[in-house]
Amino acid sequence: MLRLELTRLVRSNRPLLAVLSLALFLGLMLLGFYTYAKTETGGDVEFRYTFENASYFNGLTFALYAFYFGFLLVLPIFAATEGGAQLAGDSASGAFRLLLARPVGRARLFMTKVAVAFASTIVLCAVLLAFALGLGLLGVGFGDLDLYPGVLQMTDHHQHLDQAVALERFAMVLPAASLALFAPLSFAFLISAWSKSPVNAVGTSVAVYLVLYVIAEIHFFEALRPWLFTSHMAYWRELFREEVNWTTFFRDAAKLSGFSLLFLALALHRFRTREEL
């Protein structure tokens, strides 16, 4: 069954389209990065006194910026698309009636689909990270990673990581970020389990993710933050501190995993008990 689901995933062309979209995203990021670096360090700035300087921008900075924005705004949409399409898509196309005619348990079928979708998400995450690092190091240049308080909201003071340490941290980001993406994927499975139309499932999953993301970002809704999975998604940023606070890191990882498993349990319950006509 695993081979069947993998074959169907590859033939759907969704992974290929996602990779092409990531390549386009990184190309635009590179363009924006150079434009920003030029305007912010060339005297064309609104503020006279700014910390920006040409040496601050290097391949690792680009890779981190690109991965950060791609992780928060692009990968969750692919995860939601994959999760939304898996159950509702097969339901709409009648594939479930065919699959469930075999002596296969619904739980096994469900978990196989989850495993395939999660594997696909991990691959996309790895592709984005590898492309961002490759493009950054080869196209922009090597160097240490310096982070200042700013747009990434990573730190409240200057952090410096030597290049070798920074690359180790990038390697640690892959499993951490993949775990985080499991939450929107599981959420999309939950929506998909309640929907008969893949378009509705994907649309709803993406829309709800974006709403929760925006709510979690705005200080006005601070009291809601702990209860939204989107608040914890970028927990892997902790890895780019000079001294990683592992308690904070594992606390957020545990919360995200809790959200993911809760969504999956609810989705499985719905999938096991719903009628497939």
Binding site: G258, F259, L261
Partner: peptide
């Protein structure tokens, strides 16, 4: 088996939430 898996998922989620919200804030 499906019901058991579902229950296991709920229990694991509860344990992870307890761990995540129980660990002290820095």
């Amino acid at each position: 088996r499906g019901a058991l898996l579902e229950l296991a998922l709920f229990v694991a989620a509860a344990l992870l939430f307890a761990l995540g919200f129980g660990l002290p804030e820095f």
